[in-house]
Computed example of a mutant assay.
Amino acid sequence: MTARYDTIGINYEQLRLPDHRIAAQINHALGTASTVLNVGAGTGSYEPRDRQITAVEPSIEMIRKRKPSSAPVIQASAEHLPFEDQSFDAAMGILTIHHWSDKAAGLREIRRVTRGPIVLLTFDPSHRPWLTDYLPELVALDEGQMPKMSQYAEWLGSVTIEPVLVPDNCTDGFLYAYWCRPEAYLDERIRSGSSSFWSIQGLGAGLARLSQDLETGQWDRKYRHLRDQLEYDAGYRLVIGTQLQDS
């Protein structure tokens, strides 16, 4: 089995450290579940330590980066889960669904093996963070790979959707995490922690314009208010599937 993160997961474990505030929101959404399936688990970010976790990850490179103390992991994909029906109290998937080849099939599989809530951290592709002003290619990428918010109810049944506000000092370097630290996007190493920067070409012009705007103060004239905020709605959402589909 080959997976995308076999190639791009170079600095993942250094740059994608779970943020405790986001972790608390995910943990709360899991409710009282004792057994939790983590799909697209990567290096184990956001896996609660006070629950019995089973991780599923397609990338052998990401599996190798998991700490010895991490939950047991199985190399498999969301679309083909090697578990019996209703094997877990809950399931979680953290910024993973956009990598699945068949999103509907993956969610059907997760619903099949899960008795209770399904908690998904994802992104609303209708949102337009300021970075898209410089890199409009991100808009097309997000619209192409991120499900619309309305589709989760089609695939999971009853869902609730919560905004996940990104702290100003977020430790998890996902795409829009540096909303008040724009200089970070000029750092190639930091960009390597987000799959989106591996997916689009022609970054040079947009990054050059961002660099110039930072040097001239134009960025601060437009977005200075962001540097004074403690958190920001960058478009990330927690989708919680709460109801088993009718058999």
Results as ranks from 00 to 15, higher is better:
I60C: 09
T132K: 12
T114F: 01
P72V: 03
I74H: 08
S59K: 05
K67N: 09
K67C: 07
L131K: 11
S59L: 06
R111C: 00
G106I: 05
H127K: 15
L15C: 10
T160H: 11
V56Y: 04
Q52I: 10
G157F: 12
F123T: 06
L138E: 09
A91Q: 03
G144Q: 12
K103L: 06
D124L: 10
A33V: 05
F123I: 06
L131A: 08
A55H: 00
P117E: 12
D85C: 10
Q86F: 08
M62H: 04
I60H: 14
R16I: 07
L138D: 09
E13S: 14
V39T: 01
L95I: 14
R21V: 13
A78N: 08
H28R: 13
S34P: 01
Q52K: 09
A29R: 05
A105T: 14
P129C: 09
P18Y: 09
K67I: 01
V139W: 04
D102Q: 07
W155L: 13
N38P: 04
I161N: 04
A140V: 12
Q25R: 14
G44K: 01
A33D: 03
E137W: 00
T114C: 09
G44V: 01
L81G: 02
H28E: 11
E47K: 01
S45P: 06
I118F: 01
A41L: 10
R21I: 10
A76M: 08
P58T: 06
A24M: 02
A76W: 04
I74Q: 11
G40K: 02
L81F: 05
M146D: 11
D124I: 06
A71L: 02
R64D: 07
N38G: 12
I60Y: 08
H80D: 13
T114V: 04
T96A: 15
P117H: 07
F88M: 06
D50Q: 11
T96P: 01
T160A: 12
E84Q: 13
L17R: 15
R49V: 09
G144I: 10
P72R: 05
E47W: 05
